[in-house]
Design a protein around this nucleic acid. Structure first.
Length: 262
DNA sequence: ATGGTGGCGGTGCCA
């Protein structure tokens, strides 16, 4: 089974690119971030015509996440537990059946947190604490899960085209990185790094300043796997050509292949 | 060069 994540930066603006990618890449499950849409404006017909069922947690104008699947899904969360007052649409989670038992897929859009020194950065760190608690709950089940999404954290300086330029950026703060490491230290596997510990493996290139042409990228979209999922990890990929298409998102899809059947 | 680009929504905010 192929599990993917993609920050599409408006699902309406990206409907053409998204459907073409779904037809070609054919992920079994994909989580989308920054759909910037609610049900009324979500391109459900186009996505269903490509063979996918779609569950969304929408928000007008900002944020918004979705879970698309070729197979039946039981939605297990429409928000990250731990703060009932948090109204931002940043988390969706579902379960699909596989030949090796249930697979839980979480899709997350982790707060950007800029600028540091503000309540936005505080919110980011608090959100990461909640994500760690959710990961602990899922780990206790001793089942396969994948937490995929736009983490808005560059794990190390190797994941940044110019670490000095990002020294004061929320994506590269020691606290952000420590919170991501804490998640990994629970026993999760960064799927891309499991296969490629050295290359840059960027997943995002800013629209500004010709970043794509100069390969000024960041690695901020990740797939974190439970031990039971990591044991079946068969391959990973970053669909970099998507960034070079007309009207691209500033992020590209990241996917992993698990050695299980639907 | 304190810029630059893109999306939303119809003005600044967010990334």
């Amino acid at each position: 089974m192929k599990i993917a994540t993609w920050n599409v930066n408006s699902v309406r603006k990206r409907t053409g690119n998204l459907v073409a990618w779904l037809e070609q890449a054919r992920p079994d499950v994909v989580v989308l971030q920054e759909i910037k849409a609610q049900e009324a404006t979500f391109p459900r017909l186009e996505i269903e015509a490509a063979g996918y069922r779609a569950e969304i947690v929408g928000q007008k104008g900002f944020n918004g996440v979705a879970l698309l699947s070729l197979h039946p899904v039981e939605i297990t969360a429409r928000a990250l537990p731990g703060d009932a007052s948090d109204e931002q649409a940043r988390y969706i989670e579902g379960r699909v059946a596989t030949s090796a038992g249930p697979l839980t897929v979480g899709g997350l859009y982790l707060p950007n947190g800029n600028p540091i020194g503000t309540e936005k950065f505080t919110y980011k760190l608090a959100w990461m604490e909640r994500l760690q608690r959710r990961a602990r709950e899922l780990l206790a089940r001793e089942e396969m899960f994948v937490l995929g999404g736009d983490y808005n954290v560059c794990p190390t300086d190797r994941d940044v085209y110019d670490p000095r330029a990002f020294a004061n950026d929320a994506l590269c703060q020691p606290q952000s990185r420590a919170a991501l490491r804490a998640l990994l230290n629970l026993g999760l596997t960064d799927a891309v790094r499991a296969f490629d510990p050295e290359s840059t493996c960027y997943t995002f290139w800013d629209y500004q300043a010709g970043a794509w042409a100069k390969d000024w990228g960041l690695r901020i979209d990740h797939l974190l796997l439970s031990p039971q999922a990591a044991d079946r990890l068969a391959g990973v990929g970053i669909d970099k050509p998507e960034r070079g298409r007309p009207d691209p998102s500033d992020h590209v899809p990241v996917w992993c292949e698990l050695d299980v059947a639907a």
